[in-house]
Design a binder for these strands. Sequence first.
DNA 1: CATGAATGAGGCTTCATTCAT
DNA 2: GATGAATGAAGCCTCATTCAT
Lengths: 203, 203, 203, 203
Amino acid sequence: MSETVADRGKDRALGAKGEATRQRLMDAAEEIFGTKGFYHTSVGDITAKAGVAQGTFYLYFPTKVDIFRALVEHLSHVLRTETEVATQGARDRLEAERLGIDAFFKFVHRHRNLYRIVRQAEFVDEALYKWYYERMARGYARKLQDAMQRGEIRTMDPDLLAWCLMGISDYTGMRYILWKEENQADAAKLLDFLTAGLAPEKG
Amino acid sequence: MSETVADRGKDRALGAKGEATRQRLMDAAEEIFGTKGFYHTSVGDITAKAGVAQGTFYLYFPTKVDIFRALVEHLSHVLRTETEVATQGARDRLEAERLGIDAFFKFVHRHRNLYRIVRQAEFVDEALYKWYYERMARGYARKLQDAMQRGEIRTMDPDLLAWCLMGISDYTGMRYILWKEENQADAAKLLDFLTAGLAPEKG
Amino acid sequence: MSETVADRGKDRALGAKGEATRQRLMDAAEEIFGTKGFYHTSVGDITAKAGVAQGTFYLYFPTKVDIFRALVEHLSHVLRTETEVATQGARDRLEAERLGIDAFFKFVHRHRNLYRIVRQAEFVDEALYKWYYERMARGYARKLQDAMQRGEIRTMDPDLLAWCLMGISDYTGMRYILWKEENQADAAKLLDFLTAGLAPEKG
Amino acid sequence: MSETVADRGKDRALGAKGEATRQRLMDAAEEIFGTKGFYHTSVGDITAKAGVAQGTFYLYFPTKVDIFRALVEHLSHVLRTETEVATQGARDRLEAERLGIDAFFKFVHRHRNLYRIVRQAEFVDEALYKWYYERMARGYARKLQDAMQRGEIRTMDPDLLAWCLMGISDYTGMRYILWKEENQADAAKLLDFLTAGLAPEKG
DNA sequence: CATGAATGAGGCTTCATTCAT
DNA sequence: GATGAATGAAGCCTCATTCAT
């Protein structure tokens, strides 16, 4: 009785070889989910691209949805980390926003597949989808609130502001990076708007 | 050995009875696609809810994707019309924005299912998805540009601005209407941000 | 109670209009069965080509197989009649054969669809298929037997001979008329073989 | 949104078990196609008779048509091989004909299902159908031509002759073996006709 | 004599998952 | 750790046929 059904595909400790295989599956899934979409991707597609047998998949993930979740969690982690790093040295919030947006655009450009994955989560695992956005919004709002207290930006509802900024990044990222294949949207122009709003210049 | 299909569910002229059946199918699909998502909805689900036999579906739509398309096109039409009407009497662009956002929130509140449908299009019919957003952005940008020329709002890239505003509406609509079930997000607060931007109040 | 189910699609007497509709259905079926094959043809295809509503079909034929049968019977009649006429003036059997083969080729050329229809009968209605060939063979054999008695051709098993000649016509018709689109296979060369057989010329 | 198919039932290398399953499917298909015909046979019929689940079918053949093709190709191979072997020792073409016809009749008797399969190809896969007959005719004609050059049979169009002889075999095979269930049509009588033709004995 | 909307059974195919080796 | 053959449920779609008008 080498192994019971119960612990299959769970987070057992993996040896080096196992870890490598798991990574190959993740990479394959990232590419195919990002390209064709979750529902047009079969487990067989993933294993084929990863170069392993179908059965192998279930040694690492209990179901197809689980690898998707792992990917979203990974994305969440990577994106927050990269943003963190990019905005580290910012003098104030406005500069942090510019750096953050820049970093986001670069991320989308480099990881277009990963980026496209969350967008599908709404109809794959809605709880995960909300988790992703709310976690991101929470961290974002906190930073904005701090900046407000430091007087770096106008005082307003930090939560609402976080969602607005996320919406802006997402839509412009989609439009200018994903679709236009411009590797760099003009973050400066964006910042103008963010800074000054719609109101016409006085005088 | 070409197809066999005599005249499948395309735009035949429909009698009153046919039109009613088609509408029942559309209504059913709207609800179920919006609730469970396109890929978790079977044609059988739709016809069951519509109260017709499965085969009847194909009298009105050639494939499952086609009813989805029809729904998106319908949504596009309704939403643009409602916004148009809502902003008709606006004195200037800023007021139009407030009225438009308000109308959008109301729309999402009343038609949450319809609203959730476009969001799936990215992985059902990407061309349609782009069509939807680009058409909307184009119209929006045109209005913004006019307003810039009239001096009602700051001069900037109207296209970029349109996408920003769409992102804001979409994300706040999702967050405050769809998820929070608040039937009215605070459009006024949103407008503050839009009007004045992030920059701290002078003085 | 205008009409019971029982007599639907039966050989009721038809008025002129009805007769015309029935003929249109037959013509349409002949073309489509001949082109795409019985199993790739839907009743809807037939009615569409005939320009009538689907339901109308069942006013004239009880099932889809029935119109196929009607077509085969029609073909049987026409072909035997044409052969009859063509061979009328033949001086002897050899001449009759030549004229008959000629007529057959012309028939195939003119009615390629009709010709292709019997060939499908084997797997649509096997009894009909056998009926068709056996009826044809019987008539043919009788004529051959008479000719043997008159000393016009060698004496042998007339039945076997009939099947051989039918096989020859069918295969050469298929090869030279149906596929090569030659409107006239060389019946003369065929006759040489039929007359003298394989045996090398003496001397 | 391209296909999802990872590696469907194509010519993978098969282990012994796989090979056995594939063969069981072929055998089952041969019998049922031969009996009920391609269009009255469902994939479920085949798998049921083979004793495997429906899904298993698609591990070995991409579509229902493909197993049909495989069968025809198999038939083509077997029949040509058997004929080859049977006519090996023939002294001249006339003897080869007799031996060949004999072998053909035996083949039909033993493999009636296989034999009935090609006949359906005309309306399942017409290209395959032509391929089958033209390949056979080509090989046949070459042999006949050689025999003519050696003076063993009369000189005439070898292609035309090949088709005549194929027609004769097919029709008599159908009539005497398939329908009459005679396990041996009288190949000798047939040969008489082939040898001497229709012309009455001189003198 | 004709229409066309409706039916529902049935077929092909896909695919997540299991399991013996 | 890995394989790949097998499963069977489920989904999309077609089509012969019926029936109310």
